[in-house]
């Protein structure tokens, strides 16, 4: 009887309950929360961090780590902006932006695979470098010269659901298929479970690491484009808090930072829970830095337990015992 629900399912159910509870609270506390406008803006804002969460989930499952996601977001926005300023057609500016992200991912992979460096430190360094490049070129200014054909995507709705959110859902479904239905997905899980064993059983370890880091860079660049569409400008500070926010959300969703374990649905529910909290803070008129404090605390509390479920169970046990 006990094993009908796996720990993964438990985490997802717990997250759904938590999301529902926060929503009920916010509805009671603020009359503007449960309006169509607020929910739509919530879903739209969630889209770019959701895409980042998909990228981070993939890297974590493979046993890797990528801190450079936020900087790549700003980088791709900058490339798209400058290509538009140079008068390139929209297709090329999007292509170059995505390519830029992929190149950063490739650089990460090269350093991690060929020189056997720790992904923590490598991506910390690339994060600093890419952010510095963005600041150096943009000098604190924003680029707003984007064509309307790109910006109007932010106002499109399909069946009342914002298009940006649908892009996120598409990304998540594709990544889910990749993880569950293809051999690549099985390789990624094997790689994160135990690299040595995976190598000895014939998993192309090096190729898979390249694949994961390049994919992470590509998805981060896509997230950067989504941000550009949403705020109608490329800003140098884009994704400054993204590593904290996204890693926290992913870890809440039951993905292990040690690799080999994780779920995309959990990550997305984690992002949603985080956005509900941030939205709630702004609706209640609190200092936005409170959310940073709370996210940091949640990260530390949850990360050792691999998912939001275990601390709760531990809490219950403690209560029962005393």
């Amino acid at each position: 009887m006990k094993n009908i629900l796996t720990s993964q399912t438990k985490i997802i159910i717990a997250l759904i309950v938590i999301d529902a509870v926060i929503m009920v609270f916010l509805t009671l506390l603020s009359p503007t929360f449960l309006t169509y406008g607020n929910i739509v803006s919530l879903l739209t804002r969630m889209s770019e961090l959701g895409v980042l969460a998909v990228a981070v989930t993939l890297t974590f499952i493979s046993g890797g780590f990528d801190l450079s996601i936020g900087a790549v977001m700003a980088f791709s926005g900058m490339i798209a902006g400058y290509s538009t300023l140079l008068g390139l057609p929209l297709f090329f500016s999007i292509l170059f932006a995505l390519l830029g992200g992929a190149v950063i991912g490739l650089a990460n992979a090269l350093l991690v695979v060929e020189l056997r460096l720790q992904p923590f430190v490598v991506t910390l360094a690339t994060m600093t470098m890419v952010r510095s490049i963005v600041y150096g070129f943009m000098r604190g200014k924003t680029i707003t010269a984007f064509p309307d054909s790109l910006l109007s995507l932010g106002d499109k709705y399909v069946l009342g659901i914002p298009l940006l959110f649908i892009i996120l859902v598409l990304c998540a479904i594709l990544a889910f298929m990749l993880l569950k239905k293809t051999i690549l997905g099985r390789y990624i899980f094997a790689l994160g479970g135990n690299e040595r064993t995976a190598f000895l059983s014939g998993v192309p370890v090096r190729t898979m690491k390249y694949f994961v880091y390049v994919l992470s860079g590509l998805l981060s660049a896509l997230a950067g484009l989504l941000l550009v569409i949403r705020i109608r400008a490329a800003i140098p500070d884009a994704g400054l808090n993204a590593p904290l926010e996204v890693i926290t959300a992913v870890v809440i969703g039951g993905t292990s930072i040690k690799g080999g374990k994780g779920s995309l649905l959990g990550s997305l529910l984690g992002v949603f829970a985080m956005f509900l909290l941030i939205n709630g803070f702004s609706l209640l008129g609190l200092n936005p830095f409170w959310s940073v404090i709370i996210l940091g605390t949640v990260l530390i509390v949850v990360v050792g337990q691999e998912g939001i479920m275990v601390p709760f169970i531990a809490l219950l046990h403690r209560k029962v015992r005393s």
């Binding site: 923590f120 904290l244 409170w290 940073v292 404090i293 940091g296 990260l299 530390i300 990360v303």
Partner: peptide
């Protein structure tokens, strides 16, 4: 790294 990533943001936030 994860712990200090958390505390870095907590301390700055406070």
């Amino acid at each position: 790294l994860i712990i200090t990533l958390g505390t870095m943001n907590i301390f700055r936030g406070i």
